[in-house]
Simulated assay, not measured.
Amino acid sequence: MNTVTSFTTHTGPVSNAYAELADQGVLIADPAQLEAAGLLDDVLAGVSAEQPKGFLSKLFDKPEPVRGLYLHGEVGRGKTMLMDLFFAGVPIKQKRRVHFHEFMDEMHAGMAAFRKSVKGKDADPVEAVVRPIVKSGLRLLCLDEFHVHDITNAMLLYRLFEKLFAHGVTLVATSNVVPDELYKDGLNRQLFLPFIALLKEHVTVASLPAARDYRRMKFAGQHVYAFGTGPEVRAEMDRLWLRITGGVAGLPGIVESIGRQIPVPLMAMGAARFAFPDLCEKPLGSRDFVRISHQFDSVIIDDVPQMDRQKSDAAKRFILLIDNLYDRGVKLGASFVVPLEQLGKDDRTAFEFQRTVSRLIEMQSEEYLAKGLRDAPSEVAG
């Protein structure tokens, strides 16, 4: 077991949880990650100590939010894992964690609906989407993968967060880039610069220069697919699961998607494990699979069957699922009842399945497994 002596200099829910994982051998302790855990402890302590305010108070008072954190670093350095520990340790209910692009999609959809329903050009759609957030009492907003690449988000962010910060919302965000490089070379970027100043006014900006690419280490030298049925295949998937979670068995959880909940049989350390029917024999669609691909960097699917005409709907969902995981760069582990080239036996989906099999072949390659997540465009709500 590899630990660092600086554990004694950091105490708090995130640092303690991190130290416990290192002691258990789930992760290799890294001084940079430990420093980031200490910064998250500071935010957690401030948010936990802050007294919630009533709706009218939040509307008319202008409370100063607890100073947040903007944690940036290269892919695979542990940002998501630290956010997991932080969010789980925050003892208040008025908290929310969501992928940045999903959050912005929600804001745009809310404003579009407001414009359609309200007459009068003086109405403010930004205020309309902020008001229910304030009314809910939200005190902590955690955004994964903060990255601005389109002008619609760039032009909205200042007005949106000016109001959220004014109502006492604390922001914790992870990103692959420093704030000064957000929307770099974007159209009319000078109009975006006030948001960068606003952001730095309300968050501590910290880098995470961890020494290792932990996400890549999970899959180095691993066979991610197994074929056939029976206890040996299951055991192979169990071993892969424990490898990518660092030995954590995992617990059931949920993925929030368009106001409903998708059950996740097992989730741990940024990974999720499903049986094939959990994803492909339930009424899920592309937007749901986008949510899953944004929430997890690794997904295991057990017992993928051969899909003939009797499983036509399941085959279509499987095609959508693989498309979304592939576009995002999510790492896939799976057990298949038959070889890949025999999976699709429905002539109605034969053409699409050719692309799916090609992607499945690529997704087990060392090159694919070594790459980080892609910043695939999210599906903009309309």
Rank of each mutant, 00 (worst) to 15 (best):
D144I: 01
F146R: 05
H149Q: 04
N153Q: 07
M155Q: 02
M155E: 03
Y158D: 11
R159W: 01
E162L: 09
H167C: 11
H167M: 09
G168W: 02
G168N: 09
V169F: 05
L171E: 05
V172C: 05
A173N: 06
T174S: 12
S175W: 01
V177C: 09
L182H: 13
Y183D: 12
Y183G: 12
L187N: 14
R189W: 10
L198I: 11
P209V: 06
R215L: 07
R215C: 08
M217L: 13
K218E: 12
V224Y: 09
V224W: 10
V224P: 06
F227P: 00
G228A: 01
T229M: 03
V233F: 00
M237L: 02
D238Y: 00
D238M: 04
W241H: 06
L242W: 12
L242F: 04
L242P: 07
R243K: 10
T245E: 10
T245S: 07
T245A: 10
I254K: 14
Q261W: 04
V264F: 13
V264C: 14
M267R: 11
M267I: 11
A268V: 10
G270E: 05
R273H: 13
F274T: 15
P277V: 08
P277N: 13
C280E: 10
C280V: 03
E281D: 15
E281A: 15
E281G: 11
